[in-house]
Design a protein around this nucleic acid. Structure first.
Lengths: 112, 112
DNA sequence: CAGAATCCTGCGCGATACTG
DNA sequence: CAGTATCGCGCAGGATTCTG
């Protein structure tokens, strides 16, 4: 009944569904989160760049900034030469991984 | 180890994850599937148009065609005047709903 | 090494009009 | 009612260059 109302009242955009999509939609956001998860630990800027090939520097920077703003990843800077920056999942980001895993699992089933 | 290899070999794109995303990425694809699911039954063209506001006719037509090509929805035409066409979830499409539900649930938790 | 800055491009998507 | 056809554009994303 709740769901029915949502949809009847044309407010799909007020559901948690739309809320989540707003945070993770974009060409590389989910891939970025998933790459960090698969690595089982934080990744450096250039590692992400390589893993997300063919992403551009600009897209990567944007993606990381937006994910950080959404508190899904954290950015840790090591002030030294040469510079080193790591990106890892926050608790919030980790809580999203089961969802991404479900996406992966579903795909694996269909592939064979 | 499998996962590690995937990521080390820069083949995130060969995972089930990428496979799934290819089918459901696009501005309105997941929303379309979810709307049909929430309705607990097939929806007509104009109903979808309304529910997915502010989608355009062109985007809606494209979205429906691509989802149908991916066998996630079916199209049923009633040959009569006035025309009536229904779009519903296939078995494959239904199998994806738990994943979309997970996305919704996650969002609901964060909203409060 | 990790970006910022700049300029450029495609195309996903929208708006509108038309049709069986 | 359920779509196509046409035209046009914003903006996400790309390519390249520069810097602390």
């Amino acid at each position: 009944m709740e769901d029915i109302n949502y949809i009847k009242e044309n407010r799909l955009e007020d559901t948690g569904f739309a809320y989540t999509l707003k945070l993770i939609s974009g060409k590389y956001k989910m891939q970025t989160l998933y790459a960090i998860s698969l690595n089982q630990g934080p990744l450096r800027y250039n590692e992400l760049k390589r893993l997300l090939t063919p992403i551009s520097f600009k897209s990567l920077a944007n993606t990381l900034r937006e994910l950080e703003a959404a508190k899904l990843i954290y950015r840790k800077e090591y002030p030294k030469i040469p510079p080193k920056v790591e990106y890892g999942l926050t608790k919030l980001g980790e809580s999203l991984i089961p969802v991404l895993d479900a996406i992966c699992t579903w795909g694996e089933k269909q592939m064979k």
